[in-house]
């Protein structure tokens, strides 16, 4: 690709986002890291610069849409192809939500409506430029509501449906949307949680995402075998599923 690329990375403090940022930066893209922990993101930006890339840290809080304008404006000033990757998310324990249903709003904000709001502001720019890729990281948890994690799952399912619609929209204008559904990834979010298996490294997930982007895939599971695991889980009839605790 001869065009210069810029990636806005939302939720840039996560280890998956860091791995993704290193990869796109190594390919020559300008990276705009967006998230809440500025001190930490400045370190990631410094790391990318030391490796020969261009990077900058910018504030983004999924729960404060008033700050979105500045971020979108900053992205608009970059020439070439504008892309965005969403790694934002939060996963309170289901038991914490059961004790305080007020946590539901924040979970939906972080995983769905916050990022969707920002992507909606970015979409016209991608349409105007006639190019650009959006990577939305959801979760296999969004494929079916399970007793242990269904508020988080519901938020991710909502986000996945949003991404599907956005793909439908941007496809008309030369843009592309990839929905990524990672299985268990070896991050701070899963560290020390019981019952993890077939855990993938953040860098392997980042690599899978970029391969999928190059091929123009629409929905990917990473690692790939989660497609089959989730197919089975989705096929379990509801009368049976409601009695299970998986």
């Amino acid at each position: 690709m001869s065009d210069s690329h810029t990636w806005i990375i939302l939720g840039a403090t996560s280890s998956m986002a860091r791995a993704f940022a290193r990869r796109v930066s190594a390919e020559g893209a300008t990276v705009l890291l967006a998230g809440r922990d500025m001190e930490d993101m400045r370190k990631t930006a410094a790391d990318l610069v030391a490796r020969g890339g261009r990077a900058e840290a910018l504030p983004f809080d999924a729960r404060t849409p008033s700050g979105f304008d500045a971020l979108v404006e900053r992205g608009r000033t970059e020439p070439g192809v504008l892309n965005a990757a969403v790694f934002v998310g939060s996963m309170p324990e289901q038991s914490a939500i059961d004790a305080d249903p007020g946590l539901i709003d924040g979970t939906v904000r972080d995983n769905f409506t916050g990022p969707a709001h920002l992507l909606h502001m970015l979409a016209p720019e991608i349409e105007a430029r006639g190019a650009g890729t959006i990577v939305g990281v959801g979760s296999v948890a969004g494929d079916r509501g399970r007793v242990g994690n269904y508020v988080y799952g519901a938020a991710k399912a909502g986000f996945a449906t949003y991404l599907s619609g956005l793909r439908n929209r941007l496809n008309r204008a030369g843009g592309h949307v990839i929905t990524v559904k990672p299985g268990f990834v070896d991050t701070a979010m899963t560290w020390g949680i019981e019952g993890m298996f077939l855990v993938a490294s953040p860098d392997a997930v980042a690599r899978d995402i970029l391969r999928a982007a190059a091929k123009g895939r629409n929905v990917i599971y990473t690692p790939f075998f989660w497609r089959w695991i989730m197919l089975i889980i989705r096929l379990i009839p509801e009368p049976v599923f409601k009695k299970l605790s998986i």
């Binding site: 403090t13 280890s15 860091r18 922990d37 001190e39 930490d40 370190k43 991050t187 701070a188 560290w191 020390g192 949680i193």
Partner: peptide, 30 residues
């Protein structure tokens, strides 16, 4: 910070130990 029970060895794999391991990703967590 969550602690993970990890069985580890030195590179020579003679000594073994089970520890509670934290793996911070940021200075604030460390």
């Amino acid at each position: 910070m969550r602690w993970n029970t990890v069985e580890c060895t030195g590179w020579g794999r003679v000594h073994r130990a089970t520890s509670q391991v934290a793996r911070p990703e940021r200075l604030s967590t460390l």
